[in-house]
Design a protein around this nucleic acid. Sequence first.
DNA 1: GATTTATTAGACGAATCGGTCTAATAATAA
DNA 2: TTATTATTAGACCGATTCGTCTAATAAATC
Lengths: 215, 215
Amino acid sequence: MTRADSPLSPTDKPRRGRPRGAPDASEARQKLIRAGLEHLTEKGYSSVGVDEILKAAGVPKGSFYHHFKGKADFGLALVAAYNTYFVDLLDRAFLDEARAPLDRLRAFTETAEEGMARHGFRRGCLVGNLGQEMGALPDDFRAALTGVLEDWQARTARLLRAAQAQGELGPHHDPDALAETFWIGWEGAVLRAKLELRPGPLRRFAGTFFRLIES
Amino acid sequence: MTRADSPLSPTDKPRRGRPRGAPDASEARQKLIRAGLEHLTEKGYSSVGVDEILKAAGVPKGSFYHHFKGKADFGLALVAAYNTYFVDLLDRAFLDEARAPLDRLRAFTETAEEGMARHGFRRGCLVGNLGQEMGALPDDFRAALTGVLEDWQARTARLLRAAQAQGELGPHHDPDALAETFWIGWEGAVLRAKLELRPGPLRRFAGTFFRLIES
DNA sequence: GATTTATTAGACGAATCGGTCTAATAATAA
DNA sequence: TTATTATTAGACCGATTCGTCTAATAAATC
């Protein structure tokens, strides 16, 4: 064994020719994801054409079908990208030890409202949008979307348990049930805010939610 | 004035030729509305084509464009039809004097769940569906959809006030805010139930909602 | 250099989109 | 019957849908 193997390649297949770039690093791919998120959070999956995204991203069709198997595959990639973005947003609020747990949840709702305001309440939640369109989507989306929501809920339940531990939330509450109800309602509020183009529904839902669980 | 005027015609224009049928009675129109509701509650507006509805209704294209100005006009007619159907459903539950007011709201959620179960949780709420698609819809839809939701909310607030009058609901609650929160959450629950193809979200939301306001 | 593979580039195609159009048929008044 | 209007019937149209295909270019190894 005189020659050293490529140190990072897991399989010993001797690769030749131009190497694959890091699977996500491709500039074209990133531009497509970004443009896709902007368009799909606003208009959903069915009413946005591939060509529309290509034009917005400034990327030719060849690249799109090189990086993605098709529109559905692209959609699933968007869900994954949206989830990592969103989980980061959640963590930033939920893990802020400077605040009391319940206050962190409230802080999230405020940050989310600012996010919607930044786009004139025209962009909603990708997961909510696609969930509503599920009847017209390939079936893989179902597991992907529910998985994402369950993840968000689990993080929220954890937060609510911390609130209970600190006596901020009554011990008679069920954190899991409460977390699920929160996300059910929050998705509804985002939908409604997008419909009315104003923050009212977000505030109204968060307001009554917190008032009810704190009494 | 020897000759009697047509007793029902409001304007005195002497109409000749084949008379217009009652604007809603047309069989073709009814079939289109029914097929449209079935398809749009399941798959939304953007992903359902006019041809698909024609085929399901067994009605030729000429009829469609005779009765409706276009797809958007048809969509608005569907919203109106859905609203009258839904308001009837609401009234049947909300005006049932045999039950206590809050119990009538609970009865509605149960009836609604049965309705969704009847279609395997594949059909959602037309208003929620179109609301989510608002970014891709003609702007007339916004007022139509918000109007419908406000109507449902007003009926619910009335019911909640009755609950307060009977001491079933604490006087510190704001019926209007509570009604809005209910519908925000309920739409979210319907969306989620459709995504998961099961009644869990409906029950979970209704359960925590009633538990919270009754404590 | 030659070779091999990754990626870009966009013309092209079959299918479907919403919508128009003309002709036929139905139902009534005159 | 004749005239007039409502309604049905579906062929047809231009635009857009998602996806394929071939050729060119880039980046690496040998």
